[in-house]
């Protein structure tokens, strides 16, 4: 039995290794064939999680305007989507929440040249009950205020740090403000949804999120606008995935997103139109 076991192990291991080897060699060629994007009536769009609401609506509008076409979305963090597309996931187009993630794909020539289709800015949200008694941006520096922000490596976190740096340079706030606000951050969240959730539940007194997220949270939160002088503008790029079997469909969808109808839907959800 022992010998038999060893033999079995060898055989199975050899088969497995052969399979692994095959995968390694043909990774790029097999990626397209597994796609569900073969049929021209089917479109698979990979989009940043923050686009869930507007893109779901745009998808329905696009389907109505193009009978017979079925649009399927894969919503996730832009970073996750980049990894998935890099591993050959069947996407026809990719909409990212930031240019950095899109750049990762353009530098590997996995997507065609991207177009900016919308913009977003950052705002401060507070729970409707306002437990931290936050009336303006100055109050965020008060002792004992609890703030949720994005982690530094997450786009919203990067933008928040940029805004605080901009405010530190101004005479009105200064570097002591930046230090006090940073000291009040009790959690560096890995996603915007984590920040919104903690503000909605009143577990933190304030959070930095995108204007579109503030709008989506409805009356559970109140917004305190960040003036344009300190604020940053996040560009959202979209591109056709090179491996797509439905390039025409992907291009047509992108065209629809950029059209007046598409832009109107985006602005309804708090996104800024592109000129």
């Amino acid at each position: 039995m022992k010998r038999l076991g060893a033999l079995l192990l060898t055989v199975v291991a050899a088969v497995a290794l052969a399979a692994c080897g095959g995968d390694g060699g043909g990774g790029s060629s097999s990626s397209g064939s597994t796609g569900s994007s073969g049929s021209p009536s089917k479109l698979t769009i990979f989009a940043a999680a923050s686009l869930t609401d507007p893109f779901t609506t745009i998808g329905k509008q696009y389907e109505a305007a193009n009978p017979g076409v079925k649009v399927t979305f894969n919503f996730a963090g832009s970073n996750t989507l980049v990894t998935q597309i890099g591993q050959g996931a069947p996407a026809d187009a990719f909409a990212s929440a930031d240019t950095q993630n899109m750049d990762k794909l353009t530098s590997q020539s996995l997507v065609d040249s991207p177009t900016t289709f919308t913009k977003n800015t950052v705002t401060v949200i507070i729970p409707a009950a306002n437990p931290g008694k936050i009336e303006n941006l100055e109050d965020l520096a008060n002792d004992g205020v609890k703030i949720a922000a994005g982690a530094e490596d997450v786009p919203i976190g990067t933008y928040t740090q940029e805004i605080l740096a901009n405010m530190a340079k101004s005479s009105g706030y200064g570097s002591s403000y930046q230090a006090a606000v940073k000291g009040n951050i009790v959690s560096q969240e890995t996603s915007v949804s984590g920040i919104v959730q903690k503000v909605e539940l009143g577990e933190v007194d304030a959070g930095y999120v995108y204007v579109s997220d503030a709008l989506a949270a409805g009356d559970k939160v109140k917004s305190i606008a960040i003036p344009e002088t300190y604020n940053v503008v996040a560009d959202y790029p979209i591109a056709v995935v090179k491996e797509s079997k439905n390039q025409a469909g992907a291009n047509s969808f992108i065209k629809y997103v950029l059209s007046a109808d598409g832009q109107k839907t985006l602005s309804k959800y708090g996104f800024l139109p592109v000129e």
Partner: peptide, 27 residues
């Protein structure tokens, strides 16, 4: 952990959270 305790280095950032945060930029 990320939902209940959040993420603050040295206070609530455990090793799996470090992995997740790192995966955002440096795989």
């Amino acid at each position: 952990t990320i939902t209940f305790a959040g993420n603050l280095p040295g206070v609530t950032q455990t090793l799996p959270i470090t992995v997740y945060i790192a995966s955002q930029r440096d795989l």
